[in-house]
Write a protein that binds this DNA or RNA. Sequence first.
DNA 1: AATCGTAACAGGAATCATTACTGATTAGGA
DNA 2: TCCTAATCAGTAATGATTCCTGTTACGATT
Lengths: 129, 129
Amino acid sequence: MQRYSRQRESIVDYLRSTKEHPTAETVYQHVRVQLPKVSLGTVYRNLSQLAAAGEILRFSSIDGVDHFDADTATHYHFICNHCGRIQDVPMSPLSDIDRLAGIGVRGEIDGHAVTFYGHCDLCLDSAEQ
Amino acid sequence: MQRYSRQRESIVDYLRSTKEHPTAETVYQHVRVQLPKVSLGTVYRNLSQLAAAGEILRFSSIDGVDHFDADTATHYHFICNHCGRIQDVPMSPLSDIDRLAGIGVRGEIDGHAVTFYGHCDLCLDSAEQ
DNA sequence: AATCGTAACAGGAATCATTACTGATTAGGA
DNA sequence: TCCTAATCAGTAATGATTCCTGTTACGATT
């Protein structure tokens, strides 16, 4: 049974308030403002728990560190190969591809993730100068 | 300038011979059969180098460990949520989605990756029993 | 309200993948 | 053949994440 905890609530609150796809470390820094005694282990434990329960998403990026997202609806990401920034892609999910992929593989497909790679506007701008 | 090395050749050879999307550790175990004195650091260094040069692909899975693939053509993966096995999905790449995503984001999109999640045939079979 | 069982906590140690360093080796062009 | 930078083996260091220990406090039961 999952009980209420101030720490977990603060973690979820922060995740819902941002679109930055933060890492555990970043979550920790923000939660610490409200709860100065929180420990990094607690952040990790709760993030794992929330991800396992499907309340948040965990995914990895090019920096080798896990990132988290409170938006659990299917949506896609754009990762800058240069600075590593992660942005949401405002595009409707590809509705048919799970079925399409299912034709070729044995097993059961539950969902998919799409990640676009390239260079974000900020990095393109700074390269021009 | 990139010089020839027996170690790097052996790494590439092994990657081209398998469809298993191995980790650095697995590559190490196989290269060690041919070159018993090879060190794990050498494997890591060469894998990073090859990935940077675009000769192989590096990607991460649900196990938190990097996997490598000698097939650099755009293709999609199916990852079993239960056992972590990674399979190729025999499906033609979605040709138009880079442009489609580009409408909504500022920046330049160079490519994309699609990963399907679910349960592979082996795990479904063993669950039945 | 007192007691009890246990989920959750803080703090810190341990683990594990990966990278960096060091001194020795070697590919490959002059 | 000689030179030198790329590469190596071995090992230490790093950094993200997990695990462990003793403690706290929620929530159910009496």
